[in-house]
Every structure is written in C-alpha cells, then in structure tokens.
C-alpha cells in the first residue's frame, strides 16, 4: 500500500466514524437528512462507477431501487430481514445483467431510453398483478428505527467505496479506462467491451436494490408509485454529474449540496422542484461539464503552476 493510499484510507475511516456519530446529535431533522444524504451517496457513487468510464447514462436507478423495496415488502413475512439484503442484491444484479445484455451492445441513446422506461414498466406490471390479486400495497413492519437504517446505509456506502477502489485496481478497471478512452482500441487489444460493461452495470443494479431494501422499513406502507418514483433516477444522475464522475469521491461532493438545496426548495416552493431539476441539468451541461471535481482540479492546477 502506498503512502497516498494509506492516507486516503485513514481519512475515509475518520470520515465514516464522524458520519456514524451523527445520531448522537439527537436531532431528528439531521438524522433524516443523514439518511437521505447517505442514500443518495450510495446511489450516486455506484451510478458513477458505471457511467463515469462508459459514458452511458442510466435512468434505471428507480427500477432497481423499487425491486429492492418490494423484495423487503414481500419477503419480510417469510424470511428474516438480514437475508433479504443479499436477495435484493442478487435480483438487482440479475436485472441489470438482463438490461445490459439487451442494450449495452447498442448506442447510448437506446440505453437511456430503455432505462428511462424500465421503472415505469416494472411499476405497471406490479400494479397489474396487485389489481389481479386485489391488493393495493404492502405493510413492512419491523423494529428498525431511522438510526438503524442510517447505519446500514453507511455500511453500504463503505462497501461501495471499497468496491470502487478494488475495481480501479483490477483488470476490469483498466479495461474500463481503455474503453472510456477509445472503444475501438479496447476491442482490438482483446477486451470484450460488452461483457465488461454488463459486469460493471451489475454493481449499481445490486447497490440500488439493496438501498431500496434497506429503506423499505422506513416507508412502512409500500405501493408501486412510491417504490418506483422516476424522480429518484434523475436526482441520482444530477448529483453524480454535479459532483463529477472522474473520481470515486466525486459523487458525494454533488450529493450534499444538492440534497440541502432540494430540501430547501421543496420546503418553500414545493411546486418548483421539477424546474430545479431542469435548471440543474442545464447548469451541468453548459457550466460544469466535469462537475465540482473538475472545478477543484482546475483550481489546483492553476495554483500548482502547470503540469498535469
């Protein structure tokens, strides 16, 4: 382990410990915010793991998340809660692999459209099945409190960072950097580009499903329109891009300010959140194409006096 890696490890352990102490503040408002921020950190970081190197924009987060939520909602009657998380992960990963198989061989536009429709597709199917069986929603009754959900999400975040770090050091990570630079070259040096992308896409698929499974006890009553809200996918894209996908820690830099801004806007102007979402997209494209990470790196380069 190099000195730099050791420093990063110590810093992230300290940050995690500090974050884990949040419930000790005793403020239920900040605990709620903590859950929201931890959830988006998990979702946006895993999203960026895939979309950063491949440049494919996935809007499937809500679909995976919803599948995870329903895993808990249906499974809680039959199995202990802890076994549901790996089941959700497996379901999310398999679903991501299927989506990847159908679309990742094709151009990015097809992928966006496909993932855009996916959450709505699953939602309509579940609604239809529920109509057939005469059910409206499902109750998830556990003794898990907000605090427990928060700690679980922090643990998941730590896992996501670990996975990102391991991938970056693996053959897969090297393959993805090559794909990001030039896919034609990647194929001609012997990389199965479609397979690499499918395997990588399984990561956000599994992570979002687990996040959904973890949050289900918070909602208590689960119905399709709640579990599969399309807004979630868009928020994740914005936060990840706002932070910057070039670095593993980039997403969280976008998550914290955007979550605070979102909460502030929806508290005072509840009808303007859509407008905010639109403006955020335009800001990213026209003003911050590399996100906050890009801004920071440019600033550091200017201060450091050139060089790369």
């Amino acid at each position: 382990m190099t000195g730099q890696e050791l420093r990063a490890l110590i810093l992230s352990t300290l940050a995690l410990a500090a974050a884990a102490a949040l419930p000790a503040l005793g403020s239920s408002y900040w605990l709620t915010m903590g859950v929201t921020i931890a959830m988006y950190t998990v979702l946006a970081t895993s999203w960026a793991l895939f979309s950063g190197p491949t440049h494919y924009i996935s809007l499937a987060t809500a679909a995976f998340f919803g599948v995870g939520t329903y895993t808990t909602a249906i499974g809680i009657e039959l199995l202990p809660y802890w076994t549901l998380l790996p089941i959700a992960a497996a379901l999310g990963a398999v679903m991501a692999a299927l989506v990847g198989f159908a679309t990742l061989r094709l151009s990015g536009v097809y992928f966006v459209i496909f993932t855009l429709g996916l959450a709505e597709f699953v939602r309509q199917i579940i609604t239809w099945v529920q109509n057939l069986t005469g059910q409206k929603g499902l109750y998830v009754l556990t003794d898990l409190t907000e605090k427990h959900i928060y700690w679980q999400l922090l643990g998941l975040a730590a896992l996501v960072y670990l996975a990102g770090w391991l991938i970056a050091r693996s053959r897969l990570g090297f393959a993805l950097r090559i794909i990001g630079d030039d896919e034609e070259v990647a194929r001609h040096v012997g990389i199965d580009t479609a397979l690499a992308k499918i395997v990588l896409f399984m990561v956000p698929g599994a992570v979002a499903a687990v996040a959904g499974a973890m949050l289900a006890p918070r909602y208590i009553y689960i119905e399709p329109s709640l579990a599969f809200t399309p807004m979630l996918s868009f928020q994740v894209v914005i936060m990840a891009l706002l932070g910057g996908t070039g670095r593993l820690w980039g997403a969280v830099v976008g998550v914290i300010p955007f979550t605070l801004l979102w909460e502030a806007i929806s508290a005072s102007f509840p009808n303007q959140t859509t407008l905010l979402l639109g403006v955020a997209f335009l800001v990213i494209v026209y003003l911050l194409p590399r996100g906050f990470v890009g801004l920071l790196e440019d600033a550091r380069r200017r201060l450091g006096g050139g060089g790369w």
Partner: peptide, 16 residues
C-alpha cells in the same frame, strides 16, 4: 451524452 442531458434539462424546465 450532451444533447441527452441538455434536452432532459429543457424537458424539466418546460414541465416546471
């Protein structure tokens, strides 16, 4: 990628 993001932005602004 740019046009997808920009037109998504436009779409949300229009809805808003």
């Amino acid at each position: 990628v740019d046009s997808i993001l920009a037109t998504f932005g436009l779409s949300f602004v229009a809805v808003g």
